[in-house]
Design a binder for these strands. Structure first.
Length: 457
RNA sequence: GGCUCUAUCGUCUAACGGUUAGGACGAAAGCUUCUCAAGCUUUAAAUCCGGGUUCGAUUCCCGGUAGAGUCACCA
């Protein structure tokens, strides 16, 4: 049996460490993605770590939330852990620091509610810390103005900066890839590393994704969107991943649509942007549409079906088979599946499943008010279409059956009433496509019905 | 305000000292089977400002300006 440790020696280990203090935001997806991509590309390990050391703000439901996000996105982790379960480990390191005189118990005067009268402070050596960032380059900061910062409320309650350093070291994290808001935290974490004798990981700080108004996508920002709303609104995981990868990074070529596998292959820290970017939802829409196009017919149908409201499914003409004929028409008109729900609720889909009702004036093309001619056109179209065999009732056949007549009679004069008779809508797919979807019997019925309305007046 | 970082079309970005500064999203216009959608074609749109270095700066250096992050007993 081969020695595992030898195998993984020198291997890349990355991590993503969300804190369960609110519904996980879309912006965070990118950090997770880059850590994931980097680990997969290097055949390394990707660890997901729940940073729940704050007992009052951490909630189980929020942990479940981000777990669900990553499951949906397919960013599977190799290891999972919770900081709340590692108290013993932190305690050991804390004790070592205390006995080495690198930290001390400090008497305090509580300023805020909940503040302790005694905390553990780190003895700041007050020096200039320099580190290299794979994206930003060399950075050095004088840590003197940090003072002797607090690393634990008490021996059982270590704080963020301390637990991060201990965990990254214990887990053998080789690359810390995280948002740029952490560059200011890095010097103090390096100080702690040096105090506990930890090795320094490679740092890569990602540019921030700002909201439309150029502000950080923070948890408290009301404009910010919980990640799962994208799932619920019918965005594809691959599209969201693609979009996130492309904001702040690009592979250099002119390709813009990528699968997760392609991203794993192409990703590189060198090509990560230095400047902050804005969340460009229009581009996401476009990318989602591109990924929708690449979906199989089965998956496409399934997505559309789940977003169809029950009111539509209850319509008399509704069937799975009918739906599958409409799918291409719908797919062409949406950027995300949530729009299916919108369309259905606006009644834009009803005419596929039941005969439309419309005022008869709508059958007339523009200023043409000649009822006799209109009636005749409707009948001719019905006759032309009636001659097509059931088995050949396709869009192409229908078009070629009607086209010559429409050309001589005037396209609008023929096509508009034909389409209106089938859809009852000012706007809809073209009449040939509609007829093919509705099939011969229903098409003829609707044409006949239109003729009857005109004939009556 | 201190500290740190950043700066190419509205947005995402390409151009590792030499290009008519390229692409994509979005926008506008036109074409295509009546309407819509899709598609195709075209157009408008950028190197923050000022100094250097250099034969030559989007690119290197300095200053300014602007923007962002961060300054917790949150993470």
């Amino acid at each position: 049996m081969p020695d595992r440790r030898a195998q993984t020696a020198g291997a890349v280990i990355t991590r993503f460490a969300p804190s369960p203090t609110g519904p996980f935001q879309v912006g965070g997806v990118r950090s997770a993605l880059f850590n994931y991509l980097y680990a997969r590309q290097h055949k390394g390990k990707y660890i997901l770590r729940c940073e729940d050391t704050d007992p009052v703000r951490s909630k189980k439901e929020y942990e479940d939330y981000f777990l669900e996000v990553f499951a949906w996105l397919g960013l599977e982790h190799d290891e999972y852990c919770r900081q709340s379960e590692r108290g013993l480990l932190y305690g050991t390191y804390l004790n070592d620091l205390l006995s080495a005189g690198k930290a001390y118990i400090s008497k305090e005067e509580p300023k805020k509610e909940g503040e302790r009268a005694e905390v553990v402070r780190f003895k700041n050596p007050n020096k200039v810390v320099s580190f290299h960032d794979e994206i930003l380059g060399d950075i050095s900061v004088d840590t003197t103005d940090l003072g002797d910062f607090v690393i634990a409320r008490d021996m059982q309650s270590p704080l963020y900066h301390f637990t991060v350093v201990v965990d990254d070291f214990e887990m053998g994290i080789t690359h810390v890839i995280r948002g740029k808001e952490h560059v200011a935290n890095t010097p103090r974490q390096i100080l702690i590393q040096e105090a506990i004798g930890a090795t320094r990981p490679i740092y890569a700080h990602l540019p921030l994704i700002l909201s439309q108004d150029r502000k950080k996508l923070s948890k408290r920002d009301p404009n910010v969107t919980p990640a799962l709303t994208y799932r619920d609104n019918g965005y594809l995981p691959e599209a969201l991943l693609n979009f996130m990868a492309l904001t702040g990074w690009n592979p250099g070529g002119e390709q813009e649509v990528f699968t997760k596998e392609e991203l794993i292959k192409l990703f590189s820290l060198e090509r990560v942007q230095r400047s902050d970017g804005i969340f460009n939802s229009e581009k996401l829409e476009w990318l989602n549409k591109e990924h929708i196009r690449r979906l199989s017919k089965e998956k496409l149908t399934a997505h559309i079906e789940t977003h169809l409201p029950s009111g539509t499914k209850d319509l008399p003409g509704y069937s799975r088979e009918m739906l599958s004929r409409i799918v291409p028409v719908i797919a062409e008109r949406i950027t995300h599946f949530g729009e299916v729900t919108l369309m259905a609720n606006d009644g834009e889909l009803d005419f596929y499943f039941k005969a439309p009702v419309y005022p008869k004036e709508k059958l007339f093309w523009k200023e043409d008010r000649d009822a006799v001619k209109l009636l005749n056109r409707l009948n001719v179209v019905a006759d032309l279409i009636g001659r097509i065999h059931d088995a050949e009732f396709t869009q192409e056949q229908i078009k070629s059956a009607v086209w010559d007549y429409a050309e001589t009679e005037g396209r609008g004069q023929v096509l508009w009433p034909m389409r209106y008779a089938l859809s009852g809508k000012d706007r809809s797919p073209d009449p040939f496509q509609l007829a093919a979807i509705l099939e011969k019997k229903e098409t003829l019925e609707r044409l006949k019905n239109a003729a009857a309305i005109i004939g009556k007046g």
